[in-house]
Design a protein around this nucleic acid. Structure first.
Lengths: 252, 252
DNA sequence: AAGTGGTCTAGACCACAAG
DNA sequence: TTGTGGTCTAGACCACTTT
Protein backbone atom coordinates (compact mmCIF):
# COMPACT_ATOMS: atom_id res chain seq x y z
CA UNK A 1 0.00 0.00 0.00
CA UNK A 2 1.42 3.34 -1.04
CA UNK A 3 1.41 5.46 2.08
CA UNK A 4 -1.22 8.00 1.09
CA UNK A 5 -0.30 11.40 2.46
CA UNK A 6 2.60 13.16 4.09
CA UNK A 7 3.13 10.84 7.03
CA UNK A 8 6.69 10.90 8.18
CA UNK A 9 5.87 8.67 11.11
CA UNK A 10 5.18 4.92 11.00
CA UNK A 11 1.53 3.96 11.35
CA UNK A 12 2.14 1.92 14.48
CA UNK A 13 3.75 4.94 16.14
CA UNK A 14 0.83 7.17 15.27
CA UNK A 15 -1.57 4.64 16.74
CA UNK A 16 0.59 4.31 19.85
CA UNK A 17 0.71 8.08 20.20
CA UNK A 18 -3.07 8.32 19.98
CA UNK A 19 -3.47 5.78 22.74
CA UNK A 20 -0.73 7.32 24.89
CA UNK A 21 -2.31 10.74 24.70
CA UNK A 22 -5.70 9.30 25.56
CA UNK A 23 -4.17 7.68 28.62
CA UNK A 24 -2.38 10.84 29.70
CA UNK A 25 -5.60 12.81 29.17
CA UNK A 26 -7.29 10.50 31.63
CA UNK A 27 -9.60 8.86 29.10
CA UNK A 28 -8.23 5.57 30.37
CA UNK A 29 -7.27 5.21 34.03
CA UNK A 30 -5.03 2.54 35.57
CA UNK A 31 -6.73 -0.83 35.26
CA UNK A 32 -8.83 0.12 32.24
CA UNK A 33 -8.77 -2.08 29.18
CA UNK A 34 -7.40 -0.45 26.03
CA UNK A 35 -8.83 -1.06 22.54
CA UNK A 36 -7.61 -4.52 21.46
CA UNK A 37 -5.95 -5.67 18.27
CA UNK A 38 -9.28 -6.17 16.51
CA UNK A 39 -10.50 -2.70 17.50
CA UNK A 40 -7.36 -1.04 16.22
CA UNK A 41 -7.47 -2.99 12.93
CA UNK A 42 -10.99 -1.72 12.38
CA UNK A 43 -10.65 1.87 13.55
CA UNK A 44 -7.26 2.50 11.89
CA UNK A 45 -7.58 0.17 8.91
CA UNK A 46 -4.31 -1.69 9.52
CA UNK A 47 -3.21 -5.31 9.61
CA UNK A 48 -3.07 -7.35 12.74
CA UNK A 49 0.70 -7.16 13.12
CA UNK A 50 0.62 -3.38 12.88
CA UNK A 51 -2.03 -2.98 15.55
CA UNK A 52 -0.03 -5.42 17.62
CA UNK A 53 3.13 -3.39 17.17
CA UNK A 54 1.34 -0.27 18.40
CA UNK A 55 0.22 -2.02 21.57
CA UNK A 56 3.75 -3.36 21.95
CA UNK A 57 5.11 0.18 22.07
CA UNK A 58 2.97 1.02 25.07
CA UNK A 59 3.95 -2.19 26.82
CA UNK A 60 7.65 -1.53 26.22
CA UNK A 61 7.17 1.91 27.71
CA UNK A 62 5.70 0.35 30.81
CA UNK A 63 2.46 2.30 30.29
CA UNK A 64 0.34 -0.74 29.50
CA UNK A 65 0.45 -4.46 30.20
CA UNK A 66 -1.18 -7.39 28.44
CA UNK A 67 -3.06 -10.22 30.04
CA UNK A 68 -3.31 -13.31 27.86
CA UNK A 69 -6.79 -13.92 26.57
CA UNK A 70 -8.12 -10.83 28.28
CA UNK A 71 -6.72 -7.66 26.75
CA UNK A 72 -4.21 -4.87 27.19
CA UNK A 73 -4.62 -2.74 30.30
CA UNK A 74 -3.33 0.55 31.65
CA UNK A 75 -0.73 0.06 34.37
CA UNK A 76 -0.53 1.76 37.74
CA UNK A 77 2.55 3.00 39.60
CA UNK A 78 2.31 2.74 43.38
CA UNK A 79 5.81 2.37 44.71
CA UNK A 80 7.24 1.45 48.07
CA UNK A 81 9.55 3.98 49.64
CA UNK A 82 12.98 2.69 50.58
CA UNK A 83 14.98 5.01 52.81
CA UNK A 84 18.70 4.63 52.34
CA UNK A 85 19.56 6.66 55.42
CA UNK A 86 17.13 5.87 58.19
CA UNK A 87 18.84 7.58 61.07
CA UNK A 88 17.78 11.05 59.97
CA UNK A 89 14.41 11.88 61.38
CA UNK A 90 11.81 12.29 58.69
CA UNK A 91 9.86 14.86 60.66
CA UNK A 92 12.72 17.32 60.74
CA UNK A 93 12.44 17.87 57.01
CA UNK A 94 8.79 17.08 56.70
CA UNK A 95 7.86 20.46 55.29
CA UNK A 96 8.94 19.30 51.86
CA UNK A 97 6.64 16.55 50.78
CA UNK A 98 7.93 13.91 48.43
CA UNK A 99 7.18 14.12 44.78
CA UNK A 100 5.93 10.60 44.13
CA UNK A 101 3.03 9.31 46.11
CA UNK A 102 4.04 6.17 47.89
CA UNK A 103 1.30 4.30 49.62
CA UNK A 104 3.21 2.15 52.06
CA UNK A 105 2.35 0.25 55.23
CA UNK A 106 -0.76 -1.87 55.69
CA UNK A 107 0.74 -4.35 53.27
CA UNK A 108 2.35 -7.67 54.19
CA UNK A 109 5.95 -8.49 53.37
CA UNK A 110 7.01 -12.13 53.11
CA UNK A 111 10.57 -13.40 52.82
CA UNK A 112 11.02 -16.21 50.39
CA UNK A 113 13.54 -18.44 48.62
CA UNK A 114 16.06 -18.19 51.45
CA UNK A 115 19.39 -19.90 50.84
CA UNK A 116 22.63 -19.77 52.81
CA UNK A 117 25.74 -21.33 51.31
CA UNK A 118 29.51 -21.08 51.46
CA UNK A 119 31.27 -20.57 48.14
CA UNK A 120 34.47 -19.25 46.65
CA UNK A 121 34.19 -15.49 46.21
CA UNK A 122 33.27 -14.32 42.73
CA UNK A 123 35.98 -12.08 41.33
CA UNK A 124 34.04 -8.80 41.60
CA UNK A 125 33.06 -9.58 45.21
CA UNK A 126 36.58 -10.49 46.24
CA UNK A 127 37.79 -7.16 44.84
CA UNK A 128 35.26 -5.19 46.88
CA UNK A 129 35.70 -7.19 50.08
CA UNK A 130 39.47 -6.88 49.73
CA UNK A 131 40.07 -10.63 49.97
CA UNK A 132 41.79 -13.08 47.66
CA UNK A 133 39.76 -14.40 44.74
CA UNK A 134 38.28 -17.79 45.63
CA UNK A 135 38.59 -17.15 49.35
CA UNK A 136 35.42 -18.58 50.85
CA UNK A 137 32.45 -16.26 51.39
CA UNK A 138 29.15 -16.82 53.13
CA UNK A 139 26.38 -16.22 50.60
CA UNK A 140 22.91 -15.32 51.88
CA UNK A 141 20.21 -14.91 49.26
CA UNK A 142 16.48 -14.31 49.63
CA UNK A 143 13.44 -12.81 47.92
CA UNK A 144 10.93 -10.31 49.31
CA UNK A 145 7.29 -10.65 48.35
CA UNK A 146 4.83 -7.85 49.03
CA UNK A 147 1.14 -8.76 49.04
CA UNK A 148 1.91 -11.72 46.81
CA UNK A 149 3.98 -9.67 44.38
CA UNK A 150 7.77 -10.28 44.45
CA UNK A 151 9.56 -6.94 44.63
CA UNK A 152 13.17 -7.52 45.63
CA UNK A 153 15.95 -10.10 45.24
CA UNK A 154 18.92 -9.81 47.57
CA UNK A 155 22.20 -11.66 47.83
CA UNK A 156 24.76 -10.72 50.43
CA UNK A 157 28.35 -11.86 50.67
CA UNK A 158 30.46 -11.94 53.84
CA UNK A 159 34.01 -13.25 54.36
CA UNK A 160 33.65 -16.82 55.60
CA UNK A 161 36.65 -16.41 57.87
CA UNK A 162 34.85 -13.57 59.64
CA UNK A 163 31.43 -15.14 60.15
CA UNK A 164 32.38 -18.80 60.65
CA UNK A 165 30.50 -20.33 63.54
CA UNK A 166 28.14 -17.37 64.02
CA UNK A 167 24.41 -17.29 63.41
CA UNK A 168 25.10 -15.49 60.16
CA UNK A 169 25.73 -18.89 58.61
CA UNK A 170 22.22 -19.98 59.67
CA UNK A 171 18.98 -19.20 57.86
CA UNK A 172 17.74 -17.42 60.98
CA UNK A 173 20.33 -14.87 62.04
CA UNK A 174 18.50 -14.09 65.28
CA UNK A 175 17.41 -10.77 66.85
CA UNK A 176 18.89 -7.74 65.14
CA UNK A 177 19.89 -9.80 62.12
CA UNK A 178 23.22 -9.95 60.37
CA UNK A 179 24.41 -6.53 61.51
CA UNK A 180 23.85 -7.30 65.18
CA UNK A 181 25.86 -10.51 64.78
CA UNK A 182 28.64 -8.63 63.02
CA UNK A 183 28.78 -6.28 65.99
CA UNK A 184 29.25 -9.24 68.32
CA UNK A 185 32.12 -10.36 66.12
CA UNK A 186 33.81 -6.98 66.50
CA UNK A 187 32.92 -5.93 62.99
CA UNK A 188 30.01 -3.58 63.56
CA UNK A 189 29.14 -1.73 60.34
CA UNK A 190 29.63 1.99 60.80
CA UNK A 191 29.57 3.16 57.21
CA UNK A 192 27.72 2.23 54.06
CA UNK A 193 28.11 2.80 50.38
CA UNK A 194 25.29 2.18 47.93
CA UNK A 195 25.84 2.09 44.20
CA UNK A 196 22.68 2.35 42.13
CA UNK A 197 22.08 1.64 38.47
CA UNK A 198 19.24 0.50 36.24
CA UNK A 199 18.82 -1.74 33.22
CA UNK A 200 16.33 -4.12 31.66
CA UNK A 201 16.05 -7.44 33.50
CA UNK A 202 17.52 -10.77 32.47
CA UNK A 203 15.06 -13.54 31.77
CA UNK A 204 15.74 -15.07 35.17
CA UNK A 205 15.21 -11.77 36.96
CA UNK A 206 11.98 -11.17 35.05
CA UNK A 207 10.71 -14.59 36.12
CA UNK A 208 11.71 -14.34 39.77
CA UNK A 209 10.17 -10.87 40.08
CA UNK A 210 7.16 -11.58 37.83
CA UNK A 211 7.97 -8.50 35.80
CA UNK A 212 5.81 -7.50 32.89
CA UNK A 213 7.19 -6.06 29.69
CA UNK A 214 8.67 -2.59 29.85
CA UNK A 215 9.72 -2.83 33.48
CA UNK A 216 13.39 -2.14 34.25
CA UNK A 217 15.13 -3.33 37.38
CA UNK A 218 17.09 -1.17 39.79
CA UNK A 219 20.37 -2.66 40.98
CA UNK A 220 21.74 -1.62 44.35
CA UNK A 221 25.15 -2.79 45.47
CA UNK A 222 25.53 -1.97 49.13
CA UNK A 223 28.88 -2.28 50.87
CA UNK A 224 29.06 -2.20 54.66
CA UNK A 225 32.29 -1.03 56.33
CA UNK A 226 33.43 -1.66 59.87
CA UNK A 227 35.92 0.64 61.60
CA UNK A 228 39.03 1.64 59.71
CA UNK A 229 37.23 1.21 56.44
CA UNK A 230 37.25 -2.57 56.55
CA UNK A 231 34.56 -3.91 54.16
CA UNK A 232 32.57 -6.66 55.85
CA UNK A 233 29.56 -7.22 53.63
CA UNK A 234 28.49 -6.74 50.03
CA UNK A 235 24.76 -6.89 49.36
CA UNK A 236 23.59 -7.05 45.76
CA UNK A 237 19.90 -6.22 45.39
CA UNK A 238 17.63 -6.36 42.36
CA UNK A 239 14.44 -4.28 42.66
CA UNK A 240 11.31 -4.17 40.56
CA UNK A 241 11.45 -0.55 39.41
CA UNK A 242 7.66 -0.33 39.35
CA UNK A 243 7.55 -1.13 43.07
CA UNK A 244 10.14 1.23 44.49
CA UNK A 245 11.21 4.80 45.03
CA UNK A 246 14.58 5.16 46.72
CA UNK A 247 15.14 8.03 49.11
CA UNK A 248 18.47 9.43 50.29
CA UNK A 249 18.69 12.26 52.79
CA UNK A 250 21.95 14.01 53.57
CA UNK A 251 23.40 17.27 54.86
CA UNK A 252 25.48 19.73 52.90
CA UNK B 1 4.70 -26.12 10.15
CA UNK B 2 3.83 -28.50 12.94
CA UNK B 3 6.29 -27.83 15.74
CA UNK B 4 8.26 -31.05 15.63
CA UNK B 5 9.34 -31.99 19.13
CA UNK B 6 8.68 -31.01 22.71
CA UNK B 7 9.45 -27.32 22.53
CA UNK B 8 7.71 -25.50 25.29
CA UNK B 9 9.48 -22.28 24.42
CA UNK B 10 8.74 -20.01 21.44
CA UNK B 11 11.25 -20.25 18.61
CA UNK B 12 12.15 -16.59 18.83
CA UNK B 13 13.00 -17.01 22.51
CA UNK B 14 15.21 -20.02 21.79
CA UNK B 15 17.07 -18.05 19.15
CA UNK B 16 17.43 -15.07 21.48
CA UNK B 17 18.72 -17.35 24.21
CA UNK B 18 21.33 -18.82 21.90
CA UNK B 19 22.59 -15.39 20.99
CA UNK B 20 22.49 -14.14 24.59
CA UNK B 21 24.54 -17.07 25.80
CA UNK B 22 27.04 -16.56 23.01
CA UNK B 23 27.41 -12.94 24.08
CA UNK B 24 27.79 -13.81 27.75
CA UNK B 25 30.34 -16.49 26.82
CA UNK B 26 32.39 -13.80 25.14
CA UNK B 27 31.93 -15.09 21.59
CA UNK B 28 30.73 -11.59 20.77
CA UNK B 29 32.28 -8.62 22.54
CA UNK B 30 30.86 -5.06 22.75
CA UNK B 31 30.83 -3.53 19.29
CA UNK B 32 30.68 -6.86 17.44
CA UNK B 33 28.01 -7.42 14.84
CA UNK B 34 25.54 -10.19 15.59
CA UNK B 35 24.12 -12.56 12.94
CA UNK B 36 21.50 -10.60 10.97
CA UNK B 37 17.95 -11.45 10.06
CA UNK B 38 18.98 -13.33 6.93
CA UNK B 39 21.57 -15.36 8.85
CA UNK B 40 19.05 -16.38 11.47
CA UNK B 41 16.43 -17.29 8.85
CA UNK B 42 18.95 -19.63 7.23
CA UNK B 43 20.57 -21.15 10.32
CA UNK B 44 17.33 -21.63 12.26
CA UNK B 45 14.93 -22.16 9.37
CA UNK B 46 12.44 -19.49 10.43
CA UNK B 47 10.57 -16.66 8.75
CA UNK B 48 11.85 -13.12 8.65
CA UNK B 49 9.48 -11.82 11.34
CA UNK B 50 10.56 -14.56 13.72
CA UNK B 51 14.27 -13.85 13.31
CA UNK B 52 13.41 -10.20 13.73
CA UNK B 53 11.53 -10.90 16.95
CA UNK B 54 14.56 -12.71 18.36
CA UNK B 55 16.82 -9.75 17.67
CA UNK B 56 14.14 -7.51 19.17
CA UNK B 57 14.36 -9.39 22.45
CA UNK B 58 18.05 -8.60 22.81
CA UNK B 59 17.47 -4.97 21.94
CA UNK B 60 14.69 -4.66 24.50
CA UNK B 61 17.04 -6.15 27.08
CA UNK B 62 19.57 -3.47 26.29
CA UNK B 63 22.13 -6.14 25.33
CA UNK B 64 22.18 -5.26 21.63
CA UNK B 65 21.42 -2.25 19.49
CA UNK B 66 20.54 -1.96 15.82
CA UNK B 67 22.00 0.43 13.30
CA UNK B 68 19.85 0.93 10.24
CA UNK B 69 21.36 -0.55 7.13
CA UNK B 70 24.33 -1.91 9.04
CA UNK B 71 23.29 -4.63 11.45
CA UNK B 72 22.67 -5.44 15.10
CA UNK B 73 25.59 -4.91 17.45
CA UNK B 74 26.54 -5.82 21.01
CA UNK B 75 26.30 -2.88 23.39
CA UNK B 76 28.81 -1.73 25.99
CA UNK B 77 28.21 -0.35 29.48
CA UNK B 78 30.70 2.28 30.64
CA UNK B 79 28.93 4.49 33.14
CA UNK B 80 29.77 7.79 34.76
CA UNK B 81 29.89 7.86 38.53
CA UNK B 82 27.64 10.40 40.21
CA UNK B 83 28.34 10.95 43.89
CA UNK B 84 25.28 12.01 45.82
CA UNK B 85 27.18 12.97 48.94
CA UNK B 86 30.41 14.69 48.04
CA UNK B 87 31.47 15.93 51.42
CA UNK B 88 32.59 12.50 52.58
CA UNK B 89 36.14 11.91 51.53
CA UNK B 90 36.44 9.09 49.08
CA UNK B 91 39.87 8.04 50.30
CA UNK B 92 38.63 7.29 53.79
CA UNK B 93 36.65 4.34 52.50
CA UNK B 94 38.81 3.56 49.55
CA UNK B 95 39.64 0.06 50.74
CA UNK B 96 36.40 -1.20 49.27
CA UNK B 97 36.54 -0.70 45.55
CA UNK B 98 33.34 -0.13 43.69
CA UNK B 99 31.63 -2.96 41.94
CA UNK B 100 31.03 -1.37 38.54
CA UNK B 101 33.95 -0.09 36.60
CA UNK B 102 33.38 3.54 35.83
CA UNK B 103 35.85 5.11 33.50
CA UNK B 104 35.39 8.77 34.24
CA UNK B 105 37.47 11.90 33.69
CA UNK B 106 39.34 12.64 30.48
CA UNK B 107 35.97 13.19 28.82
CA UNK B 108 34.43 16.53 27.97
CA UNK B 109 31.09 17.64 29.36
CA UNK B 110 29.08 20.28 27.52
CA UNK B 111 25.98 22.05 28.80
CA UNK B 112 23.28 22.50 26.25
CA UNK B 113 19.69 23.61 25.65
CA UNK B 114 19.77 26.07 28.53
CA UNK B 115 16.51 27.86 29.25
CA UNK B 116 15.47 30.07 32.15
CA UNK B 117 11.85 31.10 32.47
CA UNK B 118 9.33 32.18 35.05
CA UNK B 119 6.12 30.17 35.19
CA UNK B 120 3.27 29.26 37.51
CA UNK B 121 4.33 26.33 39.66
CA UNK B 122 3.11 22.91 38.50
CA UNK B 123 0.97 21.30 41.16
CA UNK B 124 3.50 18.66 42.25
CA UNK B 125 6.26 21.27 42.52
CA UNK B 126 4.12 23.68 44.53
CA UNK B 127 3.36 20.86 46.95
CA UNK B 128 7.03 20.10 47.50
CA UNK B 129 8.15 23.73 47.70
CA UNK B 130 5.34 24.44 50.13
CA UNK B 131 3.94 27.33 48.11
CA UNK B 132 0.52 27.99 46.63
CA UNK B 133 -0.27 26.32 43.32
CA UNK B 134 0.34 28.77 40.48
CA UNK B 135 2.66 30.90 42.57
CA UNK B 136 5.45 31.89 40.20
CA UNK B 137 8.61 29.76 40.10
CA UNK B 138 11.90 30.30 38.33
CA UNK B 139 12.45 27.35 36.01
CA UNK B 140 16.01 26.52 34.94
CA UNK B 141 16.41 23.66 32.46
CA UNK B 142 19.49 22.35 30.66
CA UNK B 143 21.01 19.28 29.07
CA UNK B 144 24.42 17.72 29.72
CA UNK B 145 26.29 16.19 26.80
CA UNK B 146 29.32 13.96 27.39
CA UNK B 147 31.68 13.47 24.45
CA UNK B 148 28.83 14.25 22.09
CA UNK B 149 26.41 11.86 23.82
CA UNK B 150 23.59 13.49 25.83
CA UNK B 151 23.43 11.88 29.26
CA UNK B 152 21.31 14.05 31.54
CA UNK B 153 18.32 16.40 31.43
CA UNK B 154 17.77 18.67 34.41
CA UNK B 155 15.04 21.11 35.34
CA UNK B 156 15.14 22.98 38.61
CA UNK B 157 12.40 25.04 40.19
CA UNK B 158 12.87 27.86 42.72
CA UNK B 159 10.27 30.17 44.26
CA UNK B 160 10.26 33.34 42.14
CA UNK B 161 9.66 35.49 45.21
CA UNK B 162 12.91 34.17 46.68
CA UNK B 163 15.20 34.54 43.69
CA UNK B 164 13.76 37.66 42.03
CA UNK B 165 16.50 40.04 40.97
CA UNK B 166 19.35 37.63 41.65
CA UNK B 167 21.67 36.02 39.10
CA UNK B 168 19.64 32.85 39.48
CA UNK B 169 17.21 34.31 36.98
CA UNK B 170 20.06 34.69 34.45
CA UNK B 171 21.46 31.94 32.25
CA UNK B 172 24.85 32.44 33.88
CA UNK B 173 24.41 32.21 37.63
CA UNK B 174 28.02 33.27 38.31
CA UNK B 175 30.77 31.73 40.47
CA UNK B 176 29.53 28.97 42.74
CA UNK B 177 26.31 28.68 40.81
CA UNK B 178 22.77 28.62 42.08
CA UNK B 179 23.64 27.43 45.58
CA UNK B 180 26.13 30.24 46.17
CA UNK B 181 23.49 32.77 45.12
CA UNK B 182 20.95 31.16 47.42
CA UNK B 183 23.43 31.59 50.26
CA UNK B 184 23.69 35.30 49.51
CA UNK B 185 19.91 35.47 49.68
CA UNK B 186 19.92 33.95 53.15
CA UNK B 187 18.67 30.62 51.89
CA UNK B 188 21.80 28.52 51.86
CA UNK B 189 20.93 24.85 51.31
CA UNK B 190 21.99 22.78 54.29
CA UNK B 191 20.13 19.56 53.61
CA UNK B 192 19.19 17.54 50.56
CA UNK B 193 16.76 14.80 49.74
CA UNK B 194 17.05 12.74 46.60
CA UNK B 195 14.27 10.46 45.41
CA UNK B 196 15.30 7.93 42.79
CA UNK B 197 13.20 5.80 40.50
CA UNK B 198 13.48 4.20 37.08
CA UNK B 199 11.19 3.58 34.13
CA UNK B 200 11.24 3.39 30.36
CA UNK B 201 11.61 6.80 28.68
CA UNK B 202 8.90 8.81 26.98
CA UNK B 203 9.36 9.46 23.30
CA UNK B 204 10.57 12.98 24.04
CA UNK B 205 13.10 11.78 26.61
CA UNK B 206 14.36 9.11 24.22
CA UNK B 207 14.90 11.75 21.56
CA UNK B 208 16.58 14.34 23.76
CA UNK B 209 18.92 11.70 25.24
CA UNK B 210 19.43 9.76 21.98
CA UNK B 211 18.47 6.55 23.76
CA UNK B 212 18.46 3.27 21.92
CA UNK B 213 15.87 0.58 22.54
CA UNK B 214 15.99 -1.21 25.84
CA UNK B 215 17.48 1.70 27.76
CA UNK B 216 15.57 2.88 30.85
CA UNK B 217 15.97 6.31 32.37
CA UNK B 218 16.75 7.05 35.99
CA UNK B 219 14.71 9.87 37.53
CA UNK B 220 16.17 11.83 40.41
CA UNK B 221 14.10 14.41 42.21
CA UNK B 222 16.40 16.43 44.44
CA UNK B 223 15.01 18.82 47.03
CA UNK B 224 17.30 21.36 48.69
CA UNK B 225 16.38 22.65 52.16
CA UNK B 226 17.61 25.80 53.86
CA UNK B 227 17.59 26.14 57.63
CA UNK B 228 14.48 25.16 59.54
CA UNK B 229 13.58 22.71 56.79
CA UNK B 230 12.51 25.38 54.34
CA UNK B 231 12.54 23.88 50.81
CA UNK B 232 14.21 26.26 48.38
CA UNK B 233 14.79 24.23 45.23
CA UNK B 234 13.41 21.17 43.46
CA UNK B 235 15.60 19.68 40.74
CA UNK B 236 14.12 17.03 38.48
CA UNK B 237 16.76 15.07 36.57
CA UNK B 238 16.43 12.46 33.86
CA UNK B 239 19.51 10.27 33.36
CA UNK B 240 20.44 7.83 30.63
CA UNK B 241 20.71 4.65 32.70
CA UNK B 242 23.44 3.30 30.42
CA UNK B 243 25.62 6.30 31.26
CA UNK B 244 25.39 6.44 35.04
CA UNK B 245 26.06 4.74 38.31
CA UNK B 246 24.82 6.65 41.36
CA UNK B 247 26.80 6.48 44.58
CA UNK B 248 25.58 7.31 48.06
CA UNK B 249 27.86 7.14 51.11
CA UNK B 250 26.54 7.45 54.64
CA UNK B 251 27.29 6.54 58.22
CA UNK B 252 25.31 4.16 60.42
C1' DA C 1 -18.49 -20.67 22.60
C1' DA C 2 -16.53 -16.43 21.65
C1' DG C 3 -12.99 -13.24 22.04
C1' DT C 4 -8.32 -12.19 23.31
C1' DG C 5 -3.41 -11.93 22.89
C1' DG C 6 0.93 -15.05 21.43
C1' DT C 7 3.26 -17.07 17.81
C1' DC C 8 4.39 -17.85 12.97
C1' DT C 9 4.55 -17.80 7.87
C1' DA C 10 5.72 -15.93 3.19
C1' DG C 11 5.68 -12.71 0.87
C1' DA C 12 6.44 -7.09 -0.18
C1' DC C 13 8.47 -2.22 -0.54
C1' DC C 14 11.35 1.20 1.64
C1' DA C 15 15.49 3.99 3.51
C1' DC C 16 19.85 3.63 4.73
C1' DA C 17 24.92 2.14 4.93
C1' DA C 18 28.73 0.04 3.07
C1' DG C 19 31.79 -1.69 -0.51
C1' DT D 1 24.86 -2.09 -6.16
C1' DT D 2 24.11 -5.13 -2.50
C1' DG D 3 22.75 -6.12 1.95
C1' DT D 4 20.82 -4.37 6.10
C1' DG D 5 17.17 -3.36 9.25
C1' DG D 6 12.20 -0.89 9.36
C1' DT D 7 7.60 -1.22 8.12
C1' DC D 8 3.51 -3.62 6.49
C1' DT D 9 0.12 -7.06 4.70
C1' DA D 10 -3.14 -11.10 4.94
C1' DG D 11 -3.64 -14.83 6.21
C1' DA D 12 -3.10 -19.07 10.05
C1' DC D 13 -3.22 -21.95 14.47
C1' DC D 14 -2.80 -21.95 19.43
C1' DA D 15 -3.64 -21.21 24.54
C1' DC D 16 -5.91 -18.69 27.44
C1' DT D 17 -9.81 -15.92 29.79
C1' DT D 18 -14.29 -14.68 30.02
C1' DT D 19 -19.16 -15.24 29.32
Amino acid sequence: MATTGGDRQPKYQRIANTLREAIQAGEYVPGDRLPGENDLMATHGVARMTARQALGVLQNEGIAESRKGAGVFVRAFRPLRRRGIQRLSREQWGAGRSIWSADIEDRTLVVDQVAVTEEPAPERIARVLDIAPDDAVCVRSRRFVLDGKPVLLATSYLPASLVAGSAITQEDTGPGGTYARLGELGAKPVHFREEVRSRMPSQDEANRLSLSMGTPVILICRTAFADEGRPVEVNEMTLDSASYVLEYDFDA
